[in-house]
Amino acid sequence: MSVKPTVQLENVTKIIGKKTIINNISFDIYPGEVFGFLGPNGAGKTTTIRMLVGLIKPTSGKIHICCFDVRKQFVQAMQRLGSIVENPELYKYLSGRENLQMFARMLPDVDEERIQEVIDLVDLTARIDDQVRTYSLGMRQRLGIAQALLGRPDVLILDEPTNGLDPMGIKDLRLFIRKLVDETGLSVLVSSHILSEIELLADRVAIMTHGKIVKVGSVSDLVGALSAGVDWRVSDSFRALAILQESPHVQAAELYDDHTVHTLMDESKTSILNEALMKAGIEVWTIERKVQTLEDLFISLTGGDHIV
């Protein structure tokens, strides 16, 4: 592909004191994709994001936003980046509009028209002239996004954007981000410790733990590699195992106990296999699709660090 990545991290390391907080991480994000950044609390997600937005200097390694070095070409890099780091931190004693006007003065070419545009985009028109201290968390989140979008960025970074939102708000946010990416083709980096969220929202995922990235891949690949677990409860698992292992539709079969066989197989061929077992005189009691998600992958990758 000749498309240039909008975000590039190359061998980034951050050492504070003697502790290695971020250990040699690298990844790229491309235009038009939602990149999920997944890991338990304390894995180093927020530290990484702070390095991306120039709040923290990496000890070593390079970060580029749209080919601009965050350290050496800070202004150009930040002009192409909109972000919310942790909570949407805005001036509570100012109105929503005043907040946006203030941030607009720190950006090139943002006029009143653009401000109104983002207000409409996040649907805050009714309350925009009220003080931010009176806003609900969801509204603050929306104002934060408006602030991040003011400068028409190529990259949008949202750190734990669903924190404190109700299920409805989370769904709205998901649809909003999807629509935004489809319409403007920007890149979005979303961090979260909640797996189901990232699974629904992101195109690609980086899984991080203990300051290291353990896996980067597309969600469909990661999920696809996992989703074909089927458990068979039968009267005689030894004989069933032999039959299942012979079938071309089964990639792997494993004896679990006298009555249970675990398989990795093509789900759509379940009925064919069921028929074969019945013909051989084996009673099939239950067929269970073992619900496997990124969490299984995560646990197998990290060796037991739990995420929600």
Binding site: R50, G54, Q76, M78, V85, E86, E89, L90, Y91, G151
Partner: peptide, 14 residues
């Protein structure tokens, strides 16, 4: 104290 320093310093202003 307000945490706004993070928003302030990630602007394209040195």
């Amino acid at each position: 104290n307000d945490g706004t320093i993070k928003t302030l310093l990630s602007r394209p202003v040195k």
